[in-house]
Simulated scan of single mutants.
Amino acid sequence: MKSFKADYVFPVCADPIKNGVVTVDDLGKIISVTDDKAQPSPDIPIEQVSGIIVPGFINTHCHTELSHMKGKIASGGGLIDFIKDILSFRAAETSEILAAAEAADQEMYVNGIVAVGDISNNSLTAPLKAKSKLYYHTFVEILGFLPESAEGLFNKALETVGEFKPQSTSITAHAPYSVSKELFKLIKRYSDTGTNLLSIHNQECEDENKFYRYKLGGFIDLYKHLGVDIGYFRPQARNSLQSIIPLLTNRQKILLVHNTCTNLKDIYFIKRFDRKINWCFCPNANIYIEKRLPKIDLFVNQGLNITLGTDSLASNSKLCILSEMLTLQQNFPTLSFDTLLKWGTINGAQFLGIDEEKGTIEVDKTPGLNLLTGVDGFKLTPDTKVKKLI
């Protein structure tokens, strides 16, 4: 066993402990969480550290299979051009894709991430995830806006899920603008029969809502660019999010990711439905792609369950939850350290269904321990750094 003593320990599930001491066994399981007045046995070595000890971070949205695209896409071009660039640069040798994914996995480990909700369109990363020190839940993502392709694409996704077994996986839709109503219905039918977490890209740009309401804007040009005839699609009476909510299951937890253009009317609309909605923000990717951030205050004021993600290295310079927290702190100064920490730990663990092991520093859990330095009181600063302790 080993103990770590810090200026503060933030268990997340309880008040911060001044001069806190966390004792773990050789597998990282928490044996005790106390202050220095109730230290464990003198036979247990204590490592004194300066800073705040927090649980390991949970990254609920990543694309490790896109890691080889780091630095290949110019920032600030908007989502439509970003999608075109993804399609242009995605193809690569398998060895290059896997080497970059392995480096990304190690980067997340060093940055104190202990669990990842990862988007995959194929099974290339399955061996990497099987041997990783991180916990992965893989969302096998389907894209297909033509109704006639729905069944074939869904069956292919089922095959991919089989290639990931026995790892934790589920089948999910990519985004409203890339999944037909027929395909949404197949995913709902599948989700109604067993456990199947959902993670859906939501309202990343204004063109998405314009496409659904009026069948106008950048997505019309995108489908022409791709040579896809979407003549069957008719404008809807509502925007993208309001149009797809009725197509989603009420039996599974749903993560809506990005939410850059989501407004208060959307939130009120969703509250009329019996859906288990969670909201994931990837602020650095939002800035990289669209040069804007979601209206975070709307979600905070409504008391919604919020998690954090990094998105991919195609849209981010690093895979670090602390970096996402820093960006939010800088742009929304009223966000407290306690709130940001919950978003980056226990909320993500609860969504992924691993909160019995991760997300808080509690006896018998194995959450991982991170040390944060350069914190001004309980305020993150540009000098704040994370060091993985276990």
Rank of each mutant, 00 (worst) to 15 (best):
D266V: 10
K271Y: 01
N263A: 03
I254R: 08
L293Y: 01
I270N: 01
G217M: 12
Y288G: 02
L255A: 09
D207P: 13
Y268D: 05
T262K: 14
R234I: 10
L255D: 05
A237H: 10
L293I: 00
F219H: 13
P283Y: 04
G303E: 07
N305H: 05
A314P: 09
G303D: 05
N239C: 07
F219E: 09
N250C: 08
C282D: 15
L313N: 05
D229N: 15
N286C: 15
N209W: 12
F273T: 07
I267H: 10
P246Q: 14
L264V: 15
F233L: 06
N209V: 09
L256M: 13
I220P: 03
L248V: 10
E206W: 05
V300P: 06
P294C: 06
K295I: 08
K253D: 03
F273M: 08
E290H: 04
G218Y: 02
G231L: 13
A237T: 12
D221L: 06
K295T: 08
D229R: 13
L308F: 13
Q302M: 01
Q252E: 15
S240G: 11
T307S: 10
N278P: 00
P294L: 01
L226C: 06
I270S: 03
I289G: 05
G231W: 14
C261P: 06
L216I: 15
L247V: 04
A285Y: 06
D266R: 15
K271R: 11
N278Y: 14
T249I: 11
D266G: 13
Y268N: 03
I306P: 02
N239L: 01
Y268W: 05
N305A: 02
L256N: 09
D207K: 02
P294R: 03
K291A: 03
Q302W: 01
Q242F: 10
S315Y: 07
Y212K: 03
S240E: 10
N250D: 12
R275L: 08
N263I: 04
R275H: 06
L226K: 11
T262S: 15
K215R: 15
P235I: 12
I254H: 07
F281Q: 02
I270K: 00
N263S: 01
G217S: 09
Y232H: 15
L255S: 12
H225Q: 03
Y214L: 10
